[in-house]
Simulated scan of single mutants.
Amino acid sequence: MSTAQTRAPKTRLTTSAMIASIAAPGQRTAPAPFGNALVELAKMRPEIVGLTADLAKYTDLHIFAKAYPERFYQMGMAEQLLMSAAAGLAREGALPFVTTYAVFAARRAYDFICMAIAEERLNVKIVCALPGLTSGYGPSHQATEDIAIFRGMPNLTIVDPADAHEIAQATPAIAAHDGPVYMRLLRGNVPLILDEYGYTFELGKAKTIRTGNDVLVISTGLATMRALQAAEMLEADRIGVEVLHAATIKPLDLETILAAAGKGGRLVVVAENHTVVGGLGEAVAAGMLRAGIAPRFRQIGLPDEFLAAGALPTLHDRYGISAEAMARQIRAWL
């Protein structure tokens, strides 16, 4: 066994206390699922390295850094350099996992990801915290448009996990994929919900989590967790909600989505923790239109504006992505 392997932690480390959880009171959580999954994976994959732009504690990469300090690179507040260095390491046979905030990857380092990584199909995994409305710090930290920005980039796979259970499974899955990946990251004490449904992540596959005859909710990321909670609320009103989870945004599993949307008589709602412009909703709408499928269609997502700062529960309800707000909106549409 290597020296690096002997340093791997034997217990699951927790995240920084400065990171607030998006979990509801009393909801089950798991600490730093990405960081812990990466450490476990690195035991078997010595080519894995971790890089960050001064944000190890805030992307859960500090757990990997503690376990494998000789395989960890702190690049400072220089996201363009971060992406270029990852590209160079990938060219030499390493498997870089790069972390930063989603706003910095999408807005500040886009050209470097495009030219240095995606165009060359390099095996770099870009894992970014604070996707959508998961920060109360306002527009400087809220990556409400990151999927819209990256969907147009060729060769780039985009993944938006829903909870800790899925993050733990998606991490080795994206490592096994040959090519660049952008994964949105829920960090810290991340809620658990998909394990209750026996869910297994498969890259590129959308999966039905629960069935229902009245409404089809096609969702991704945090919105899937909220959609499942809203479905439980609506069940009390005898409203049956089917939830189809599309964790992989690109390539999108249109075959599964169109088969579900084509079942007549149901309201089709796309729910996402992202602006309604350029995300999953528009991708699904375009796919249905091209296929000649025209159900009643609505979107739940963030508005096309810069969002306010404040407490996350208040903001989620204000902008319509809390479970209660989703349930209210679906009731209103029926």
Rank of each mutant, 00 (worst) to 15 (best):
E47P: 00
P313D: 10
E79H: 11
R328A: 13
G264I: 10
A20E: 14
T314I: 14
H62I: 09
M115G: 00
K66E: 14
G279M: 08
R108A: 12
I209W: 03
R107S: 12
I19E: 08
N36F: 01
I300F: 04
A175P: 05
E145G: 02
T3Q: 12
Y199R: 05
A56S: 15
A227L: 01
H274D: 05
D160R: 03
A67E: 05
Q329T: 13
A102S: 15
G265L: 11
V270E: 02
L41T: 09
S84H: 08
L302Q: 00
L156H: 00
I257T: 10
A227K: 05
A259R: 12
A206L: 04
G281D: 10
I22Q: 11
S84Q: 13
A231C: 09
Q229G: 06
A94C: 12
I113F: 06
A143D: 02
Q142G: 09
G93K: 07
D237I: 11
C114E: 05
V181L: 08
E202M: 00
L334V: 06
G88M: 08
L41M: 12
A175V: 05
V215S: 07
N155K: 11
E305H: 11
G264H: 14
F150N: 04
A85H: 09
V103F: 11
T134S: 14
V127C: 10
M83P: 02
I63C: 07
A206I: 02
S2V: 03
I193E: 06
L244D: 04
E196A: 13
M44V: 08
W333Q: 08
F64A: 02
E166F: 02
D317R: 12
L307R: 05
M233V: 14
A78M: 07
G204P: 03
P154G: 12
P191I: 13
L312K: 07
T144G: 03
V181R: 00
Y137E: 15
Q27S: 10
V215I: 12
P295S: 11
R238K: 15
Q329F: 03
I126V: 15
A325F: 05
L216K: 03
K207V: 11
G279V: 04
G198Y: 12
N36T: 09
T134N: 06
A162M: 09
M115W: 06
F306M: 13
N123E: 13
A65Q: 11
K57Y: 13
R238F: 04
E145V: 06
K57M: 12
A261P: 08
L130I: 04
E120I: 00
T208M: 15
